[in-house]
Nucleic acid binder design. Structure first.
Lengths: 347, 347
DNA sequence: TTGTACGCGTTATCAA
DNA sequence: TTGATAACGCGTACAA
């Protein structure tokens, strides 16, 4: 019986090996394998034959070292489970696949230290570029700046950092939130609450701004007690809504703008627990067109952000910067649309 | 105005650079930075100081080439969007993060060629190991074998290949399907249909076997026309169910075992379209405890596979094989549990 | 404690 | 068309 022990890698086949076997130089083998023009047809055939026989697979690590290019981009996301980021990643993958790049995925788990450490090791691995959606943590630009100083371009998406000269891809969070808030106002809601994201990520701040902007445009007084920070998850939405429901009945909101759909789902659970009807007693809207938003009861009015497109565009921009076809500092706004269902009282 | 052009990488700082600046050898710098014991305290401090000033970040590519170890594992999944794989990936990430590995994610998109190409380039990138869930495509073991021949261990998860000596992590698909079918039988359903996965992936075959096994155990006749291949997605489930609903009323199923939850959702839509009631006219059960399974109406009875655990265990096994602490060929069964809701007629 | 020589596998460069 | 040499940046092994 075999016993555990260091895995014995059957020494990998190198260009040298093939060259030696054919009595030629490694350089010629390299040329043949990379399909360069200047190699005799016959020798090329012999080389490819032997390479195939030995199952030669080029060592991309050595190649990367030589070329100072890894054909790899690092992706840092704050979470992977909910439907938004998987869709973004699929968009990214679509682009990287067809342009010959690979994708190292790192998960910051909303933890700033983990995000910094991820960026650092991705830079150490000499990724050609970084795609980042920031963690929910106190901002520290130093890690980003270190990467860009080393010549590693960054494109931020969704949760962006727009003041360090890197490109950003997102929806117009402020305007979208204003739009969906306006939708509620247009339907006669007067006391509108906001379940807000944390102020240390761009979308938290921008959506809050959009909410306030809509109130201002309609000369509706902004009431501090109608804003509760919920974070981005169900439990936070639930707790924040509970808090709003504890207000005296005449101060309670008649509608709620949630920073995203999962928080809205949590809030809906809280509302149901109090035996209030949605939308009759309290209307509610989300912001991320979660896969579940059609299934909850009532179906959630929300904003479709096209996460697939966000990923695709972010990756395209990054690769074009890597390949020197465009300059950093672009700010791309992806179109997003209001999806009207019945949680807002329509239909 | 700056014009686009090849990004100018401010030449990266190397051990040499730091050594030259301090008038010492690169080796001493390497030792200091890697925290080796045999370096003078004072020189070490000076080295670290200079390294910090220059923002030195070790070149992991050079290190990998030297060490013949990339601290990277390749993950190949057939899809990324639905809730199952993101959860698995989170489990994998948890383990790789805490054991100092990185994760290159590749997406086969259910395409065999793309899977093969992914495996090949991951091996070329000299990943230390591979985690694979196979695509829905004619099996070609050669890519797997080539990887293992090169000394790159593979651990299959969920959709496994159990006859090439690689380790596998999955639930007991056959027994689980038998169990949930038995649950329907116990509740008096007589004409049970199966929306089956394709026969070219392990879970398609195993779940079909489990379905048949349950019928046999209860001496229920297996009827060919009550099995329709649906694939793993909503649209396939919808179409397959439509087909079943075209059977003459007395031959129609009174219950359906779907190969997974998304297909079940599609089937439920088809049933609703025909104005039949679930579970009264037709009961239905799924197999993957999708995030939506509590929200559909009625909530879906299904199997909870603990995808997070599957990912975690697969990654643990792979890393222990990479590090020579265990041998390939293990078959780990992850516990899965029946989740009874009301689509089966209970509650 | 520190340094030198070399090798990891590849490709660029220049010479033959 | 082909080959020799050097270089990419690091770490091992051994010598000083």
């Amino acid at each position: 019986m075999r016993t555990p022990g260091k895995t014995v890698k059957s020494r990998q086949v190198t260009l040298e090996d093939i060259a030696r076997e054919l009595g030629i130089s490694a350089m010629t083998v390299s040329r043949a394998i990379n399909d360069r023009p200047n190699v005799d047809k016959k020798t090329k055939e012999r080389i490819l034959q032997v390479a195939r026989e030995h199952g030669y697979i080029r060592n991309e690590i050595a190649r990367s070292l030589m070329l100072k290019k890894s054909q790899t981009i690092g992706v840092v996301v704050p979470e992977i489970t909910h439907s938004f980021f998987p869709e973004v990643i699929r968009g990214i993958e679509e682009v990287t696949y067809s342009s010959g790049y690979h994708l190292i995925l790192a998960h910051s788990a909303e933890n700033g230290d983990r995000e910094r450490s991820a960026i650092r090791t991705l830079v150490a691995k000499r990724v050609d570029g970084l795609l980042i959606s920031t963690a929910q943590a106190p901002e520290t630009k130093s890690a980003y700046l270190q990467a860009t100083r080393m010549g590693t371009p960054i494109v931020f998406f969704d949760r962006i950092v727009d003041n360090i000269g890197a490109s950003c891809v997102s929806i117009d969070d402020e305007e979208c939130t204003a739009k969906i808030t306006q939708h509620l106002i247009d339907h006669g809601y007067k006391r509108i609450a906001h379940l807000s994201g944390p102020a240390n990520v761009s979308i938290g701040r921008a959506r809050m701004k959009g909410f306030k902007k809509a109130l201002r445009r309609n000369s509706i007084e902004f009431r501090r007690q109608l804003v509760v920070e919920s974070g981005f998850h169900e439990d936070g939405g639930y707790k924040a809504m509970k808090k709003l429901l504890q207000l005296p009945a005449n101060q309670r909101p008649d509608a709620v703008v949630s920073v995203n759909d999962p928080a809205a789902f949590g809030a809906m659970a809280a509302i149901n627990e109090d035996h209030l009807k949605i939308p009759d007693d309290i209307a509610i809207v989300g912001m991320s067109n979660d896969i579940r938003s059609t299934l909850v009861s009532p179906p959630l009015t929300t904003i479709n952000q096209s996460p697939f497109m966000i990923g695709k565009i972010a990756a395209e921009i990054l690769i074009s910067e890597i390949e020197g076809r465009s300059m950093p500092g672009r700010a791309v706004i992806v179109q997003a649309e209001l999806v009207i269902r019945s949680s807002c009282g329509c239909k």
